[in-house]
Computed example of a mutant assay.
Amino acid sequence: MEAQRKPLVSEEEKKLSVNEKLDLLDREVRLLYEFCKNSGFKPGEIEKAAAPFLNTTKRVSRRRWRKRAIDAGKIATLFAILGFALFYIDPVYRGMCFFARRTTIKMLPYWDWTNLYDQPCLIENPYYEGNQITEEDCMACESMNSIPVEENITHSVMSELYLKGLSPVIVTDAMKDWPERKNMNIGYLTELYTTHEVVKEYMSCDYLSNIRVKFGNHRVLLRKIVAGEVSTYFAHWENCFKEAARVFREVFPRPYFLPPMVEQTDTNFIFISSGFNAKSYKPIDTWSSMLTFAQIKGQNKVKVTPKMPCDKMCEAFEDTLDEGEILVVPYFLWNFSYLPVGGEENIAFGVGGNFD
């Protein structure tokens, strides 16, 4: 008769909690390690003998960390998609802006953050000077009494006299080689925005108009105009997705007078109006070094205003931009705004540029 085998786990051990079992296992492993060491085994030999057990432990640990990393990635992706959706939906974005604005106002009694509002950096770098306008720069506009007008202008004159010279200029013959200009009207724009396989897929940014439309959707406004539902209007918006902006750069090519040193931006602007007699100029902000404002159809009044501290030495200038003319504005020294004028259909196209 075979001898009865002793069970590997006693009844008392089966009744232990998980933590107690782990403590028991830890003690057994430590006792085994001490036994092997006292028996003359070297640490390397002990580790080699325990390799099957250690490898299993490492695999379990790696699997656990891999699962945690995947879960963290899924959560981060979900938050990123949710954040993008919240900022993309105009009512939600406006609500978030309102809440943030209200919160910052309520913080004022406890912390005056207004001193930081106009600062370019949260922490000042004593070695960084940035592009600061000096009184020496203001000499470029001190003797100006109007916006210069040019035609058949060369790259070198545009570069040295106006871009590097920090002077705005109107070029009168800039669109002679723009074949689409003669066909340009609101109907053409509407068709381009609603049927072009690339342009129709993208929304615009910074929509501003006297006609309020849901989500600032410029296509809704264009359809209303074409359908005759709107007759008095002004609007401008930015083609802020480079795929859509690239199509408009094909419709409105690079002006002949821009020197190679100017790299045009990946975004551009559309300006439209009809029958709207504006009382105040509409400012256009861009982070680029310069702006070209091309009057494709009709007229617009334009205004360039010197930035501080040059506003004390130089004048602001206003002019009327006629069809076929382009205004070039170096943004380092000047701010730009436009005034929609009443009467017929007006269409303009703006694009920024950077140069050293």
Rank of each mutant, 00 (worst) to 15 (best):
I133T: 00
Q132L: 13
C138P: 00
P126N: 03
I105S: 15
L108R: 14
E124W: 03
P109W: 04
M139L: 15
M139F: 06
L122S: 12
Y128M: 09
N115Y: 09
E135T: 00
D112S: 13
E135M: 05
Q119Y: 03
I105W: 14
V149E: 12
N145M: 10
E151M: 06
L122F: 04
L116S: 11
W111L: 11
E129P: 02
Q132N: 08
W113T: 04
W111H: 14
E142W: 02
E136I: 03
V149M: 06
I105K: 15
Y128W: 14
M139K: 12
E135P: 04
M139G: 02
E136L: 05
Y117D: 13
N145W: 14
S146I: 08
E135Q: 05
N125R: 09
T134K: 05
Y127T: 07
N131K: 09
L122V: 01
N145P: 09
M144A: 13
Q132A: 09
E129D: 13
D137Y: 13
A140E: 10
A140F: 10
N131P: 00
N125Q: 02
A140N: 05
I105M: 11
I133P: 03
Y117E: 11
P148Q: 04
Q132C: 06
N125P: 03
L122K: 12
I133N: 01
T114I: 04
I123A: 14
C121V: 09
T114P: 14
I123H: 06
E124L: 07
D137V: 05
D137K: 09
N115W: 06
T134L: 04
I147Q: 01
M144Y: 08
A140P: 03
S146R: 13
W111A: 09
M107N: 10
W113F: 09
Q119K: 14
E150T: 08
M107D: 08
M107K: 07
D118A: 07
K106W: 08
E136W: 02
P120E: 03
E124C: 04
N115G: 14
I105H: 08
D137G: 04
E136D: 09
E150G: 07
D118S: 14
G130T: 00
E129C: 07
Y127R: 09
N145K: 11
L122E: 12
E129I: 12
C121P: 13
T134P: 02
V149K: 13
P126M: 06
E129W: 01
Y127I: 01
Y127P: 01
Q132E: 09
C141M: 07
A140L: 06
P120D: 00
L116K: 15
T114Q: 08
Y127W: 11
